[in-house]
């Protein structure tokens, strides 16, 4: 059976379509992870083989004797969700070749989910290996810029000036000192056929990219901004508006890179919001709004402007 691209007309239809990820899970109220996962799963009617790295999503959705997953799902450890699903994909190919698939006319999609800790840090090598080998899989990073599962330690995705438990803001520190790793560029440099940054708040853009990813042969990397109500410190009902602030301030620009070379910006905010507004909406940046550290907000804006400029130049240059 050829997989068809699922048609979704509106948000209502989207939110009530086939549900392979149950709302019955232990994630925090307002957690963006569950929204992202549902949006990924709802983008296809095809069968799914899923993996998750250790993290919030994993510990909150498969607590024995319960599971929130109505698709085959595997978790091994913190670093190897990518390789777990790659192994399953290899087995699919082997059994297909040998004629031993139980449903030979159905071709499942292989998807791994991991947080930014599992993606940018501890699982980086495994993801790199999977992408170099070219497994037919999608890797979705639920990027909440912090080790949320263990209570808010910094990761290499944690941005400058964010207060995390292992890089706390204090009398002599403004918090995290290092800039966020550019995972999109790194994954594109693997020559991956499709790499995209998405936000659950821009659901049409996101579904289009997930569907494009599913239609792509080979490894696909999706970096999804996942505002964390607990560690970013905002009200649970504000998750989507914080995600909107992230995209509309261009802190999280939405774009895709095809075959490592063709960069397309997929969302241009009509009204670009000052970075200050994005930072100000979150408790993790509260200390920046003091005389001592206010200069960092200006630096933030300069950095975001420069990145946006660079993305546009790259888009234009098609490199």
């Amino acid at each position: 059976m050829m997989s068809e691209i699922k048609k979704i007309k509106n948000l209502k239809e989207f939110s009530t379509s086939a549900d392979r990820f149950e709302g019955a899970n232990l994630l925090c109220p307002g957690c963006a992870h569950s929204i992202i996962v549902r949006e990924v799963l709802n983008a296809t009617n095809d069968d799914l083989i899923l993996a998750a790295s250790t993290g919030c999503l994993e510990v909150c959705t498969a607590v024995y004797p319960y599971t929130s997953w109505d698709a085959s799902w595997i978790h091994i450890g913190f670093e190897n969700g990518s390789t777990a699903v790659a192994g399953a994909e290899a087995m699919y190919k082997a059994l297909k070749k040998k004629g031993r698939l139980k449903q030979p006319d159905r071709k499942p999609k292989f998807v791994a989910f991991g947080g930014d800790g599992a993606t940018y840090d501890i699982g980086f090598q495994w993801i790199s290996g999977c992408f170099e080998r070219g497994h037919d899989m999608m890797y979705v990073c639920l990027d909440n810029e912090v080790y949320a599962n263990t209570g808010g330690q910094r990761s290499s995705s944690t941005p400058i000036g964010s207060s995390a438990t292992t890089s706390p803001a204090g009398r002599t520190s403004y918090g995290e000192k290092k800039n966020k790793k550019d995972m999109m560029a790194i994954m594109a440099a693997h020559g991956a056929p499709y790499v995209a940054q998405v936000s659950p708040s821009k659901w049409k853009d996101m579904v289009a990219k997930i569907q494009k990813g599913f239609a792509t042969e080979g490894p696909v990397f999706i970096n999804a901004v996942s505002p964390c109500t607990t560690e970013w410190k905002f009200s649970p009902e504000d998750t989507i508006s914080i995600a909107d602030l992230a995209t509309d301030s261009l802190v999280f620009p939405l774009y895709e890179i095809i075959n490592g070379t063709e960069l397309n910006i997929t969302y241009r905010p009509k009204n670009i919001i000052p970075v200050r507004d994005y930072l100000g909406a979150q408790g993790r940046f509260k200390h920046l709004f003091t005389k001592q550290y206010e200069y960092l907000i200006d630096e933030w804006q300069t950095r975001v402007d420069a990145k946006w400029e660079a993305l546009q130049r790259r888009e234009e240059a098609r490199v």
Binding site: A51, G87, L95
Partner: peptide, 24 residues
């Protein structure tokens, strides 16, 4: 069958686990 040369022994066993759970 499939022969997958991975990037470390940890990944080798990780891939084996995924493959085995897949059913073969």
């Amino acid at each position: 069958g499939e022969f997958v040369m991975v990037e470390s022994e940890h990944a080798a066993m990780s891939g084996c686990i995924g493959a085995s759970a897949a059913g073969g």
